[in-house]
């Protein structure tokens, strides 16, 4: 059996439709919305701000704190219980590691930059959507950044290498599935998040990382456009 056709006639190397916007949360210092297919993420940045309790402070540099949270009604099946989950905590951790390399927090000793990621609706690829939104929100907050961070999940469904798995592919039952979320710095092409569930060969991994690179560069353009759009001035005749 071979995996022949994706939903909505999507090409194997194509992402789902993407929508991106910044400045969506007025109270936040920076914010963004990133939607890919039926997965949507809000991110809000607060800070650099004072960090309490004080023992958490680092006198050498500021720290980054990320929190990933699914809204109770955002899961495909049953209601998601609000609050801390092991999954949420792990994703928060890897998100932090994915974003940290682009920031220079030495300017902000004893401070914290808080990034809150909220998912109103999910259908696969939520950590990647969260990272894309978070990196745009950091830029919107005006923090000095070496690069944006772009993320997409790639992988293998049965015999095909694919980009941006949707939920039917994640739970594909007629063959093996490998799901590999990747975050990349589009300019230096460095990888800041890499996880995998499933099995692939060394060769396949190499190929699929190439696909991730291409997809991330496309996402990068969309992110940049969204950031520029915030400052777009309507032409006056």
């Amino acid at each position: 059996m071979a995996y022949k056709k994706r939903a909505e006639n999507r090409g194997f190397e194509e992402t789902r439709p993407i929508e991106a916007k910044v400045g969506v949360i007025a109270r936040a210092d920076g914010s963004a919305y990133f939607k890919i297919g039926n997965t949507a993420a809000y991110a809000a940045v607060y800070g650099p701000r004072n960090l309490y309790p004080r023992f958490l402070q680092n006198p050498q540099k500021g720290i980054l704190r990320c929190n990933y949270n699914m809204m109770p009604f955002s899961g495909t099946g049953e209601r998601v219980r609000p609050g801390n989950s092991r999954r949420g905590r792990e994703i928060s951790l890897v998100t932090e590691k994915a974003l940290l390399p682009v920031l220079d927090l030495e300017e902000f000793p004893n401070s914290v930059v808080d990034v809150f990621i909220e998912l109103p609706q999910t259908a696969a690829g939520s950590r990647c959507a969260g990272i894309c939104a978070a990196s745009m929100a950091l830029a919107d907050a005006g923090l000095a950044m070496k690069d944006l961070v772009c993320a997409v999940s790639v992988g293998k469904v049965d015999d095909k290498l694919v980009v941006d798995l949707d939920s039917s592919e994640e739970s594909y039952e007629e063959g093996n599935v490998a799901d590999i979320p990747v975050a990349m710095l589009p300019n230096s092409e460095q990888i800041t998040l890499l996880q995998m569930d499933g099995k692939v060969t060394k060769d396949e991994l190499k190929k699929v990382l190439e696909l991730a690179k291409k997809a991330c560069k496309k996402i990068y353009e969309i992110q940049k456009d969204a950031l520029k759009n915030k400052y777009a001035v309507e032409k006056v005749l």
């Binding site: 949360i25 936040a28 701000r49």
Partner: peptide, 16 residues
């Protein structure tokens, strides 16, 4: 249920 998400106000905190 209501969640006053910390994303929506700088004074809201994580937690129950």
């Amino acid at each position: 249920g209501a969640e006053l998400l910390p994303l929506s106000n700088p004074e809201f905190e994580l937690g129950p």
